[in-house]
Every structure is written in structure tokens, then in C-alpha cells.
């Protein structure tokens, strides 16, 4: 794979206003078309990293170097919670980014329909969020992210609240979409099976302060079939990540 960086974190530190130092001297690069996972214990600063990259937080020290001049426009974020407007239909929720960008309802209709189609929610356009299951809400959230034709997708434990079966299914769908749409993905999870199944590279974080302590490349070609999860290499990779994770959290508690 060609190594064209999309962005690079250079000695990034983040201290919250209450004095908590969430991240210290963080360095890593995400390349074009790459699927990178960030794993680590709860509270180690994974969400903080994503929020810094999305410019939802200010950096305390260091910088994020973008290879593109206008990264914001090509960036989408899928949050830990579906974060849907409860008073708006599925259609209106997915249209939100286009509406905020000033696109008319008529112009945005085909784009929204396409996004709905891609995540498999055709027929649910006029349902309200409360009528949907957790997995379907996450699909709406995903559709809202991809309606803007993003190139970089930041995902913060998007499937954390779902059961294993739904999670597996959505993992599979996400991987297909990422391949099709040539997304670059930075994916946060604390499920290492998910991380190994999805990623080119798994970054392991330690906590207090948050740092990247290991990088595990997963050298398995895409598309990865479902039964990759049952194969020996898969389990070997999982073991490696698990070992790194244990080391990262040793002596912490």
C-alpha cells in the first residue's frame, strides 16, 4: 500500500482545564486508505485523540500536521452514542449535515437516499429514532456520517453498546463500505477482536498519561472474509494485541 500520510500527530499533549493530563507526547500517522484502530483501557484518552483530530478540542501542546489544506470538509465523525435528533425522522437526521451546509431539500434528497440505501435502511426513512433498535440507530448515525462523502472517518466505539451478533454484522458491513468508498478510518474500540478484524494497524495505548506504546500491523489482505475470524493468524494477532494491552496497563492499578 502506498504510504501517503493524511495527518500526523506530533508530540501532542492534552491537559483538561481541571488539570487531568489525558495525553502526553503522542505521535502517530494515519495514511491514505488505511484502517487504523486505537485500543486501550477505559479512560486512557482514546476519545480525546479523536476529538483533537476532529478539532472539537484544542490541543495543549504539539500539533497535528495535515497533508491536505482543508481537512475539515472531508472528515466525518461517528460518536459513541448514535446522537440522533429525537424529534426528526431518519431521513431528516441523515440530511442534517447537508442542511447545515445550506443545501436545499430537493438537492440533498438523492444523496440522503443513497446513504440510506448503503446502510440498509431503505423503508425506514420516516421512522423516528425511538422506533429503531440500537443497531439501526447506529446505522443512521453511520449514514449521517457518510452522506457528506467523507474521505476520513473518525469512529469512537461506534458498536460498543451492541450485542456481539449485531457488532459482527456491522463490522463486516463497515469493512465493505470502507473498501468501496476508499475511506481512511481511525477507529476507537476496546474490543481487540474487532480491532484485529478491521484494521491494517492496531495502535495500543497506555493510560495516565495516554501514550501509544505499541503498534501491531495486521498483514492480511482485504477483502477479509467472515471466516478470517476463525483462522489461526487471526487468533495469533489477537493474542499479540492482548499481550501488548496487558503490558500497557501493567503497573497502572
Amino acid at each position: 500500500m502506498p504510504q501517503a500520510p493524511v495527518f500526523h500527530l506530533h508530540q501532542v499533549s492534552k491537559a483538561y482545564s481541571n488539570g487531568v493530563v489525558a495525553l502526553q507526547g503522542l505521535n502517530f500517522t494515519v495514511n491514505r486508505g488505511e484502517f487504523v484502530s486505537l485500543v486501550g483501557a477505559s479512560g486512557c484518552g482514546k476519545s480525546t485523540v479523536l476529538r483533537l483530530v476532529a478539532n472539537l478540542l484544542n490541543i495543549t501542546e504539539g500539533e497535528i500536521e495535515w497533508s491536505d489544506s482543508e481537512p475539515q470538509q472531508k472528515l466525518a465523525f461517528v460518536f459513541q452514542q448514535p446522537a440522533l435528533l429525537p424529534w426528526a425522522t431518519v431521513f431528516e437526521n441523515i440530511r442534517l449535515p447537508l442542511k447545515l451546509a445550506g443545501m436545499s431539500r430537493n438537492k440533498s434528497r438523492t444523496k440522503v437516499q443513497e446513504a440510506i440505501h448503503l446502510v440498509g435502511l431503505t423503508g425506514f426513512e420516516s421512522a423516528y429514532p425511538r422506533q429503531l433498535s440500537g443497531g439501526m440507530k447506529m446505522r443512521v448515525s453511520l449514514a449521517r456520517a457518510l452522506v457528506t462523502d467523507p474521505q476520513l472517518l473518525l469512529m469512537d466505539e461506534p458498536f460498543g453498546a451492541l450485542d456481539e451478533l449485531t457488532r459482527t454484522k456491522l463490522n463486516h458491513d463497515l469493512l465493505r463500505l470502507a473498501q468501496q468508498q476508499h475511506w481512511t478510518v481511525l477507529f476507537v474500540t476496546h474490543n481487540l477482536y474487532e480491532a484485529v478484524y478491521l484494521s491494517h494497524r492496531v495502535l495500543v495505548m497506555s493510560s495516565h498519561p495516554g501514550q501509544i506504546v505499541a503498534e501491531v500491523p495486521i498483514d492480511v489482505a482485504y477483502p477479509r472474509p467472515e471466516d478470517f475470524r476463525l483462522s489461526r493468524p487471526f487468533h495469533q494477532y489477537c493474542d499479540r494485541v492482548a499481550v501488548e494491552l496487558t503490558q500497557a496497563t501493567q503497573g497502572q492499578y
Binding site: E114, L121, F124, A127, L177, Q181
Partner: peptide
């Protein structure tokens, strides 16, 4: 966007509210 469609699985069925 291409148009491969993905179907919600059984475990994601809608909770009917009629």
C-alpha cells in the same frame, strides 16, 4: 457512491410501535 446494499440483520428488527 456505489450501490451495494446491506441489509439489517435479524437482531436489528424494528420495535413496532403501533
Amino acid at each position: 457512491m456505489s450501490s451495494t446494499q446491506i441489509k439489517p440483520s435479524e437482531s436489528e428488527t424494528i420495535q413496532a410501535s403501533e
